[in-house]
Deep mutational scan, measured.
Amino acid sequence: TFELKGKVGKVVKIAEDHYLVEVEGDKWIAYSDEKLSLGDRVMVVDVDGLKLKVKRIP
Rank of each mutant, 00 (worst) to 15 (best):
E16F: 14
V44F: 14
V47I: 06
E3I: 02
S37K: 13
V12D: 11
V45S: 09
V12H: 12
E24T: 03
V42N: 01
L38M: 07
A30H: 00
K5V: 15
T1L: 14
G49A: 13
Y19F: 08
E24I: 04
L52F: 03
K13I: 11
K27W: 08
I14Q: 12
S32I: 14
V45K: 04
G9S: 02
S32V: 11
L52D: 00
T1V: 15
V44T: 02
S32K: 15
V45L: 06
R56S: 05
V8Y: 04
H18D: 09
L36P: 05
D26I: 07
R56P: 05
I57P: 08
K13H: 05
H18G: 06
A30F: 01
K10G: 07
D46H: 03
V42G: 02
K13S: 09
Y31W: 10
R56T: 07
K55Y: 12
K53W: 14
Y31D: 06
V42M: 10
S37N: 11
K55L: 15
V54Q: 00
I29V: 09
K13E: 07
S37R: 08
D17R: 15
R41H: 14
V42Q: 00
D33I: 14
D33K: 10
E34P: 07
G9K: 00
G6N: 02
D40K: 05
K35I: 05
L52E: 00
L52P: 02
V12L: 11
E3F: 04
V21G: 01
V21I: 12
K35R: 11
D17W: 13
V54R: 00
F2S: 15
V44M: 02
A30E: 00
L36N: 03
D33F: 13
K27S: 09
E16G: 12
D33P: 10
E34M: 08
V8Q: 14
K10N: 13
L20G: 06
R56F: 08
K55S: 13
L36T: 03
G49Y: 14
Y31I: 06
A15Q: 10
E22W: 08
E24C: 11
M43H: 04
Y19N: 14
V42W: 01
V47W: 03
T1D: 15
V8E: 15
I14R: 08
I29N: 08
L38T: 12
A15M: 07
K10F: 12
V44R: 00
V8A: 04
V11H: 00
